[in-house]
Design a binder for these strands. Structure first.
Length: 563
RNA sequence: UGGGGAUUCGUCUAGUGGUAGGACAGCAGACUCUGGAUCUGUAUGCCGAGGUUCGAAUCCUCGAUCCCCAGCCA
C-alpha cells in the first residue's frame, strides 16, 4: 500500500514492546492470534490480527496461530479450516499453528501443582449455588463449603473428574483466591468443568475441559509468547492471569489491551451474525452485505484494503465507532489504483443514432486504467444503436443537468459527439423508452474541428454486441449507526440493502470474467464477478459506488428545481 | 452504590509544559473524453470547574459522562 509508510496512528503497543526490549524484560518478540473455531472471521478480528502480526513483524519476531479450542460443545474443525483460509487470504503468515488442546495434558499437571500447593479445590456446588455464592458487584461472595477440602481429597476427586466418574455440572476445580475480592474475576474462578462432548481433536480422551481463563494465559506462557495483545474487556482478567503464573513460577507474558473495532451500520459479533444467517435475513456467512471476511471477499474488497483500513484507524483504548465511509474511502482508493475500466449500463435505454449507417460497426480504443499506463488499451465495438443509462437522459432537464436532453450535445465516451433530437415515451407510463440523436462524424475520438465543447461524457454499450448480465447493488444492511441485533432486527434493516438488476448491458469482454475478477464500470462504481455467474452469463456485485457529486447534489434538493 | 477502563473537530486519530495537526465526512472552487481520479481553499474540537506555571490538551484537585465485570462462554 502506498500509504503504509505514513506515520501510524496509535503506536502505544509498539512503544511498550520497545520498552520491554530495551529494559531486557524480553530478548525477542512473539505474539499470537487466538481465534476460537466457532464461526467465521469478521473485520473486527482483523484489527486484532493486524496488531499481533505487525507487532511481531516490526520487531523481527514471530506470530503463532493458536486455536482456542477449550469448549468442545461449540467448536468444529470446519471453522478451523475456514479461519486458516481467511487468514491466508488476508496475507497474514504464521510461524506455527497450535491448539489450546495441544496443552491439555501439561495444563492438567499445572493444575495438580496448584492443588498440591493448596491453591485450588474441587467444588461440589451446583452451577446455581456457585452463582448465588459469588455475591454481587457491591457485596462480597461466600466461601464454598468445599473450599477447605484437604489436598489429598482434592487430588483424588480431580483425578476421578478427569476419568469421567461424575456427571456434567456436578463438580468443578476452582482456584482458591478470595471470595470477597472487589474484582469478580478473582472470586475463586472455575478452572475445569466436566463436559462430555467429544472434542474435535482429542476425541473422548477428556471429560474435563479448561475454562478460557485457566487455559489462555498458561498457553501463552508455555509457548513463550512475550506479548498477549487483546481487547479492553480482558483488562480485569489480567490480575488473574498474573496470579496463576506467579503461583506457578512460570514464564510471564505481558498482556496489553486495546479497544475493539466497531464500524457503523454493521455488526461484528459472531453470535449476532448467526442470528441474521439463521433468520434468513442474509443468504449466508458470505453474504456481500456482511463485514465477515468471506462477505467482504465476495463483495469484491481486496485484503490489502482491509488491512490498510484497520491500520489507518489506529490503536487506542477508546471506545469508538469508525464511520463506514472511512472504510469505503480506503476500498475506493485501493480499487481505483488497480481496477480495469469497463463500460456497463445498469439501467439501459436504447439510443438510436439516426444518421449512422445501418450495418456499420467501428471499433474504438479504450484505456484500461488511467491510473496505470501498463494496463494498456482494448477495443470496444460501436454501432447504430447503443444502450445508455436511463439516468443519462431527461426529457426536461433539472438545473445544472449536463447530460442528454432534446437539443443538448454530449460525448459518447471514446466515440462521437451526439446531439439529442427527441425521446420516445411509453404512452401508458410516460417513461422514456427510446432516445434519438444524430452524431457528428468529424468528432471521432477527438474534439470537434470547430472547437465546441460539451459538458458531459456518458458511457454506452453497443446494442448488437452487448452482453446481458445480472448486477447486484448493495447498500448498508442497517439503517441505524450502531445496530444491536435482538428480537426486533427487522425494525432496523435497510429494505434497500440488496437490489438485483437483470438485463444489464455490458461490454463484450466482460463475458470472460471469472468469479472474483474486479472492474470499474465507468461512472458507476466498482464491481466484482460473483460465483453465481456462468460463462457468458455473468453476475456482478457492486463493491462500492464511485464518489458521485451529481447524485449528492440532486439528493440535497438543489438539483431538482426546488429552491 | 464495589472494582476496572476511557473522554481532543460530526467520526476516527496525532500531540506527553511552548502556534491543537491529519484522515474521512461537510462546504466552496479549479481541472477533466468517467459529474471518477487529481488539485486548491474553507468551517468545526481539547468533558467541566478550580489550581500550579511566564505559558496547560499535557501537571495537581474536585466533579461529570460513557464502557466493561455477577457463564461451569471466549
Amino acid at each position: 500500500m502506498t500509504t503504509s509508510t505514513e506515520p501510524q496512528a496509535g503506536q502505544f503497543i509498539l512503544d511498550a514492546v520497545a520498552e520491554d526490549l530495551n529494559s531486557g524484560r524480553f530478548q525477542y518478540v512473539r505474539t499470537r492470534l487466538p481465534p476460537e473455531p466457532n464461526g467465521y472471521m469478521h473485520i473486527g478480528h482483523v484489527k486484532a490480527w493486524w496488531i499481533d502480526y505487525n507487532t511481531a513483524k516490526a520487531n523481527g519476531g514471530e506470530l503463532y496461530l493458536r486455536f482456542d479450542d477449550t469448549n468442545p460443545a461449540k467448536e468444529e474443525t470446519e471453522y478451523v479450516e475456514a479461519i486458516k483460509e481467511d487468514t491466508r487470504w488476508l496475507g497474514i503468515h504464521w510461524a506455527r499453528e497450535t491448539y489450546a488442546s495441544d496443552y491439555f495434558g501439561r495444563l492438567y499437571e499445572w493444575a495438580v501443582r496448584l492443588v498440591k500447593k493448596g491453591l485450588a479445590y474441587v467444588d461440589d456446588q451446583s452451577p446455581e449455588e456457585v452463582s448465588a455464592a459469588r455475591g454481587t458487584l457491591t457485596e462480597p461472595g461466600k466461601n464454598s463449603p468445599f473450599r477447605d477440602r484437604p489436598v489429598e481429597e482434592n487430588l483424588g476427586l480431580l483425578e476421578r473428574m478427569k476419568h469421567g466418574e461424575f456427571p456434567e455440572g456436578s463438580r468443578t476445580l476452582r482456584a482458591k483466591i478470595d471470595m470477597a475480592h472487589p474484582n469478580l474475576v478473582m472470586r475463586d474462578p472455575v478452572m475445569y468443568r466436566i463436559l462430555r462432548a467429544p472434542h474435535h481433536r482429542t476425541g473422548d480422551t477428556w471429560n474435563i475441559y479448561p475454562m478460557y481463563d485457566w487455559s489462555h494465559g498458561q498457553n501463552d506462557s508455555m509457548e513463550g509468547i512475550t506479548h498477549s495483545l487483546c481487547s479492553q474487556e480482558y483488562v480485569i482478567h489480567r490480575p488473574l492471569y498474573e496470579w496463576f503464573l506467579d503461583q506457578l513460577g512460570e514464564f510471564k507474558t505481558r498482556q496489553i489491551e486495546f479497544s475493539r473495532l466497531n464500524v457503523t451500520h454493521t455488526m461484528m459479533s459472531k453470535r449476532k451474525v448467526r442470528i441474521l444467517v439463521e433468520k434468513g435475513i442474509v443468504r449466508g456467512w458470505d453474504d456481500p452485505r456482511l463485514t465477515t471476511l468471506r462477505g467482504l471477499r465476495r463483495r469484491g474488497v481486496n485484503p490489502e484494503a482491509i488491512l490498510e483500513f484497520v491500520r489507518s484507524v489506529g490503536e487506542t483504548k477508546n471506545d469508538s465507532w469508525v464511520d463506514m465511509s472511512v472504510f469505503e474511502a480506503v476500498i475506493r482508493d485501493d480499487l481505483n489504483r488497480r481496477s480495469l475500466r469497463r463500460m456497463g449500463v445498469l439501467r439501459p435505454v436504447k439510443l438510436v443514432i439516426d444518421n449512422y449507417p445501418e450495418n456499420q460497426v467501428e471499433e474504438f480504443d479504450a484505456v484500461n486504467n488511467p491510473e496505470d499506463a501498463s494496463a494498456g488499451t482494448r477495443k470496444i465495438p460501436f454501432s447504430k444503436v447503443v444502450y445508455i443509462e436511463q439516468d443519462d437522459v431527461r426529457e426536461t432537464p433539472p438545473p445544472k443537468y449536463f447530460r442528454l436532453y432534446p437539443g443538448n450535445e454530449v460525448r459518447l465516451r471514446y466515440a462521437y459527439l451526439v446531439k439529442c433530437t427527441g425521446v420516445v415515451k411509453d404512452p401508458a407510463t410516460g417513461a422514456v423508452t427510446e432516445v434519438h440523436c444524430t452524431y457528428d462524424p468529424a468528432t471521432r475520438s477527438g474534439d470537434a474541428p470547430d472547437g465546441r465543447k460539451v459538458k458531459s461524457t456518458i458511457h454506452w454499450v453497443s446494442a448488437r454486441h452487448a452482453l446481458e448480465a445480472e448486477v447486484r447493488l448493495y447498500e448498508q444492511l442497517f439503517t441505524v449507526e450502531q445496530p444491536d441485533v435482538g428480537e426486533d432486527v427487522e425494525t432496523i434493516l435497510n429494505p434497500d440493502s440488496l437490489e438485483t438488476l437483470a438485463g444489464c448491458k455490458l461490454e463484450p469482454s466482460l463475458g470472460e470474467a471469472k468469479p472474483g475478477d474486479k472492474f470499474q464500470f465507468e461512472r458507476n462504481g466498482y464491481f466484482c464477478a460473483d460465483p453465481d455467474g456462468a460463462p457468458g452469463k455473468p453476475v456482478f456485485n457492486r463493491t462500492v459506488t464511485l464518489r458521485d457529486t451529481w447524485a449528492k447534489f440532486e439528493k440535497s434538493g438543489r438539483g431538482n428545481g426546488k429552491p
